[in-house]
Simulated scan of single mutants.
Amino acid sequence: MKVSIYGNNGQASVKVATALKKGLTAAGIELDSLDPDIVITVGGDGTLLSAFHHYSDRLDRVRFVGIHTGHLGFYTDWRDYEVQELIDSLVEDNGQSVSYPLLTIKVEYADGTHPDKALALNESTIKKVSGTMVADVYIKGEFFESFRGDGLCISTPTGSTAYNKAVGGAVLSPQFNAIQMAEIASINNLVFRTLGSPLILPADEWIRVEPASSANNVLMCDQLSIEGRPIKAITYQIAQQRISFAEYRHTHFWQRVESSFIGRDNG
């Protein structure tokens, strides 16, 4: 087994990463950041998102494990004081994993340059730099609505608990191989009308967004952004790839939701 440690520069994360490297070496586990079997992230959900994009070209060969060094993370199962317990689990690893759906994004440009493709673990948003965004929305190739408002958020099931939830989207179990579109401050009056509700689409359907103006749009893909380029259209669909987590004690999705947003005392 080859393991990569992917951490942020925070003092607590550096301390944990150092202890982890020492413990893995003592246990006879090889460290390899170029061709790992398992990627251990040390930090929080932001660190895991960064690691996901860093290793997005090898998702069929790598599993992720998250250690959080601050507040409880949505993707991170291990605490900073459980380094030895994690190493013991790695030593006993038998390849067990749990996988979650991802979002694939295709961006076409009005200047005819080559389209870009990207993957998102949480979500993608499209907004204007300033003013109202106007865009036509197509579902599975058929015109659905003309949108006017601040923007649109398209999320994965696990990403449904992030920005999507903040803008009124539904929390969706990752057991559903689906994507969700939520409107961000849509304009609805006697002149302009949208559905005004989140949409959930299965894997064989897709969303195409065509902004009325190709200029001054900002497209986000998790933490990454595309701006300053003339966007003609964005197409969203469930990706063929999935992200896999090493299931040593992977926390159930609804347990994560409860602990993150409700946090009642179960004792």
Score class of each variant (00 low, 15 high):
G196S: 12
T76K: 01
G7I: 00
D111W: 09
Y236R: 08
E82I: 02
S99I: 05
I126G: 00
T194W: 05
T156M: 08
G149E: 08
N216F: 13
D77V: 06
V171T: 14
L31S: 11
E85Y: 05
A51F: 13
T251L: 12
P101R: 03
N177L: 09
V98F: 07
Y100Q: 00
G70A: 10
E183L: 10
T76V: 01
V16P: 01
A12P: 01
L172F: 01
V65K: 05
A185N: 14
D35T: 12
L90A: 01
G95M: 04
G95F: 02
G149L: 09
G23Y: 01
A26L: 09
I40V: 15
S197Y: 12
R264K: 14
Y81P: 00
V98R: 14
C221D: 02
F74P: 03
V107H: 01
L152S: 02
T18S: 13
E92V: 00
P198I: 03
S213F: 13
H53T: 12
R193I: 07
G267A: 15
T194K: 05
R242Y: 02
H53F: 12
L49I: 13
S186T: 06
I87V: 15
D111M: 09
G10V: 03
N122G: 04
S155P: 04
V65I: 15
V91H: 08
A162S: 13
E142L: 11
L90V: 00
L59C: 11
L34I: 05
A185Y: 03
V137F: 06
V98Y: 08
D80V: 02
F144M: 11
Q255S: 15
V39Q: 06
D57R: 09
I126N: 03
R148P: 02
D45W: 07
L195D: 02
G159S: 04
G263S: 14
Y75K: 05
L49M: 11
G141V: 07
S146Y: 05
E227Q: 15
W254T: 04
Q11P: 09
D265H: 13
A233Y: 07
G267N: 15
Q84R: 11
V209F: 08
Y236L: 06
N188V: 12
P211H: 02
V167H: 02
T25K: 14
A110R: 06
L121R: 10
M133R: 00
R256P: 06
G196A: 12
G73V: 09
D265P: 01
L219K: 07
L59A: 10
H250T: 00
E258T: 12
G7R: 07
Q255E: 15
I38W: 04
I231S: 08
E85C: 00
T18F: 01
H250D: 01
V171W: 06
R61H: 15
V107R: 00
K15H: 08
I139C: 12
N94P: 00
A166E: 03
G169E: 09
F64R: 03
L20Q: 03
S155T: 10
N177M: 04
S50H: 14
L31D: 09
D60I: 02
A233P: 10
T251M: 11
G66H: 08
Q255Y: 08
A212N: 12
L31Q: 09
V191M: 10
G267Y: 14
G44P: 08
G112Y: 07
T25V: 11
S99Q: 13
P230C: 10
E183M: 06
V91E: 12
I234Q: 04
G7S: 12
V16K: 00
S260I: 01
L20E: 06
